[in-house]
Design a protein around this nucleic acid. Structure first.
Lengths: 197, 197
DNA sequence: GCTGTTGTGTAGCATTTGCTACAGATAGAA
DNA sequence: TTCTATCTGTAGCAAATGCTACACAACAGC
């Protein structure tokens, strides 16, 4: 079964039961939590070709969904019903591989994220986020509010850091987007003691 | 093959190639990274019956080990060589299940950790750590330095928070150990806006 | 007992981050 | 155009955390 979201949509909310395996074919899903103050913190993205590992988790362990998921605009998702997926997993080695690979990838992403939080301060994490998520032309279509959500901080802080980057000539900002100007310079912000493994 | 560590030992260091699947049968392993300042930050523990998922990851994806691992005193580990494990995974559904379960569990732990970092401040995380890791009698045999490592902070901060807890009559401290006195009170520190899911 | 090592308590300051508040800028709708 | 909603820039203060420095306490070995 395929679902298509034309605009940002809440796909799953915390506590909900999981209906099946989600396979993103287009666009992206965002997995996030809320802070007590109500601001969002992105845990990770699910991109085309990837599946929602948490949904798999919940399927295999009969758990309720532990976080929120929201779709980008223009996102398509294939949904494989839970029981079917479990049957497939038992006999299809391709499905097994896919499952394990997906889980592995996520584990690495989460550990990377954790390590970053422990070892980098916000400007490094922001720089890293910009570098990782900007298009080939260096453009990132995202408001500062959204950026703040991805980093688990607030808009003002992002604005402050952004101004710092602008002052150093590393990026340029405009309403709803950031452009990376000096990739190498930004990388130096992230890097001084190598916080990406 | 079984290995036994009678004293805290560096089992794997970052960048090392992985030789096989590690199955903890006794004691525990600690997976951690270093901050630029040289202090440690624990990512998670591997307890008896569990396997080192990162090692699995590395096996399946031919990666080098991304973090450090250290054993507790008195820890026993079964090591299944990589190629053998991969063969087993292909034909034994029990091994498949074990693998997926192990990965799933870790994903949840990491997400929990991430969520905690985003939503709780240090005193809540410390309180939570004490509650989760104290023995049935409420005793936790650990120096403040080690506690700091587990939370990714420094000894002084732990000492400060600890004093707060002592002042509130929640715990008592002595050299190399902490005793939880008022479990309910500590839980209230963690809880006010429910940061454990 | 003495001595060295390790762990703990405490203080003070620097830095980072969060929060409040408001002004100006930009884009879209009417 | 004007109005409105949203986004951004900025300032200033509060709180949390990190870092340095030192005194004292507990334990181990001699």
């Amino acid at each position: 079964m395929r679902k298509r979201f034309t605009r940002p949509t809440q796909v799953i909310h915390k506590g909900q039961a999981v209906s099946g395996a989600y396979l993103v074919t287009d666009g992206q899903l965002r997995v996030f939590t809320y802070t007590p103050q109500g601001s969002e913190a992105t845990l990770y993205f699910i991109r085309p070709g990837e599946t929602c590992v948490l949904a798999l988790n919940c399927l295999f362990n009969d758990l309720r969904y532990p976080v929120w998921i929201e779709s980008d605009a223009d996102t398509a998702v294939d949904i494989i019903p839970g029981p079917l997926y479990r049957r497939l997993f038992e006999c299809e080695s391709a499905v097994q591989d896919l499952t394990v690979k997906a889980l592995s990838t996520l584990v690495f992403r989460l550990m990377d994220e954790l390590e970053q939080i422990h070892t980098c301060n916000l400007d490094q994490r922001l720089a890293n986020f910009l570098l990782s998520n900007a298009s080939a032309q260096g453009v990132l279509q995202m408001t500062q509010q959204e950026l703040a959500g991805h980093l688990g901080t607030t808009r003002e802080v992002v604005a402050r850091l952004m101004q710092g980057f602008v002052a150093q000539g590393l990026v340029s900002t405009r309403r709803g987007a950031v452009t990376v100007v000096d990739t190498v310079g930004l990388a130096r912000v992230v890097n001084p003691s190598d916080c990406i493994f």
